[in-house]
Design a protein around this nucleic acid. Sequence first.
RNA 1: GGGCGCGUAGAACAGUCUGGAGUGUUCGCCGGCCUGUCAAGCCGGAGGUCGCGGGUUCAAAUCCCGUCGUGCCCGCCA
Length: 590
Amino acid sequence: MVQQLRTHHAGEVTESDIDATVTVAGWVQKRRDHGGIAFFDVRDGSGLVQVVADPTEQPVVDELKMEYCVSVTGVVRRRPEGTDNPDLATGQLEIGAEEIVVLSASKTLPFMIDDRVEIDERVRLEHRYLDLRRPRMAANLRARSKATAAIRRTLDGMGFLEVETPTLINSTPEGARDMLVPSRLRAGEFYALPQSPQLFKQLLMISGVERYFQIARCYRDEDFRADRQLEFTQLDLEGAFWGRDDVLATIERVLVAVTEEIRGLKLELPFPRLTWHEAMNRYGVDKPDLRFGMEIVDLTDHLTNPDFGVFKNVIESAGTVRGIYAGAQDWSRARADEVTERAKDLGAQGLVWMVVEDDGSLRSPVSKFLTDEEQKSIKETMKGEAGDVILIAADRWRTTVDVLGGLRNDMGRPKGHDELAFLWVVDFPLFEDDGEGGITFSHHPFTSPTSLDEMRDNPESAISNAYDVVLNGVELGSGSMRIHDPDVQRQVFEILGIGRETAERRFGWFLEALEYGAPPHGGFAFGVDRLVMVLQGESSIREVIPFPKTQTGFDPMTGAPTWVDDAQLSELGIELGQGARDRLAELEET
RNA sequence: GGGCGCGUAGAACAGUCUGGAGUGUUCGCCGGCCUGUCAAGCCGGAGGUCGCGGGUUCAAAUCCCGUCGUGCCCGCCA
């Protein structure tokens, strides 16, 4: 008789259980029926164990199909000589079945529960509950849980308070598009879902919560990417009476704890730091992947008097000519065109490529415009060997480094994830080139400028008290020291073009809070999804989110989002516009 | 908003460039055989609106236009 559904987890049956009667419960991974003897694997969250049964004594074995939910009682024994499975943690053991109970049958599966098969993501999402049974996805879920546990353990040990902030808040049109929620009790008005708990955590500083954190769901209604969903999870933290280095040290401790928990690796501290300008000059991005070189090299000074019109014009108009050394490449005409297309995608007018020939000369569409000295100088500066490819862009500084940084990432980023390169990017400019000759503020308006005068008088060179943490070229998150002086905050709003009245209307409540002895404070937030994604070697955030949405914000399993009744809408004082009605009518036809 | 790729049986694909009967492979599914397999093996079978709509053609999975879905990228993401 089965006394209980389970005494052991399948993956945790060990040699010490030999001769013991155990009960495992889980799903039938695969039946291998030889007639007189049959095998099947029972899989649960911990792994697999093989069960052996005699179909004549256990006729129920014939019923077992993939993903039947079963409980199996039997005696653990060592497998016969030569039948071990070295790929399995329990590969030296098996369970001789004495009783097999089908707890629940399974329909024929839409796809096999097997990491080795690549299945269309839409199909996976339609049956996400099955997809999550796959070992890889189960491991991702576990890693994520370990990550949040390590975060809580670390911060709790440092005296942080976990505080929940509201998710129905007011909309602020700056920044990303808000997800809106209509109010019934105040029909016509809307809440917004938070893009971050920014102002609430700053209020908590004023409230005397000196160390705050929250594992917070955040929402941004912008287009999707492999690393962007409408909703995502951030570790959000803030502290008072501390400075930038305290924030960085705290985040480092958290990331060290998570990495050790998930990967069993002890990271070296402190993480390297680059200023934003260094990062842009050397890697062309503000989130460099430091696992490989291919740094950007300035070639402007090596082109003393180029005949090539593009270089000449760029140099004369105070632009810059820079290159990356792409190493040995299979450099066909088609490949050159492809890379050039990509460079244009990244904003370049064009791209110059050069291949170092065996005799040391440079083969390039523009080599005839360059003097021997210039070619030699380029080759030596780029340290090019025969067969290597050098890519050169010439434009305004920002465009040049953007293009080369993008190409560097495309061509150089390692595939694996064994190596982990964390780094800090610090000293961000307060304003960024908007690519159209103007500048835009590069942070939220609560970021403290290092100098208000500088911000007003020399915006191009003004530095903010902001910092990012980057892992393997993925921006995990960012933080800053905040403004705690209400007058400074008012002036910053004004410099940013948010007029006094607008500022009072939208943020008056917050400005008032700053009037009551607000302490100096600052903090940070990083994306838990992105961190777990990189640590697990996944290239999409969706692999570490249990129930993600497709690129159009659709959940193929539940069908969300859905149309709602007119009655529901009318309670909210909402009517569908013409565009939405047309779409609905179209859908009803089909 | 834009660019590129993909859509063929329950799943993964080939076939599309160069039009000629829904042709094919692997897995799964159904039936049978099989006592040491482990992505078991062998034999047999079922399973298709070639995403959808339109066009060209004697003839369209294949060419053209549109559309939907899906992925990557650019814009966007203070």
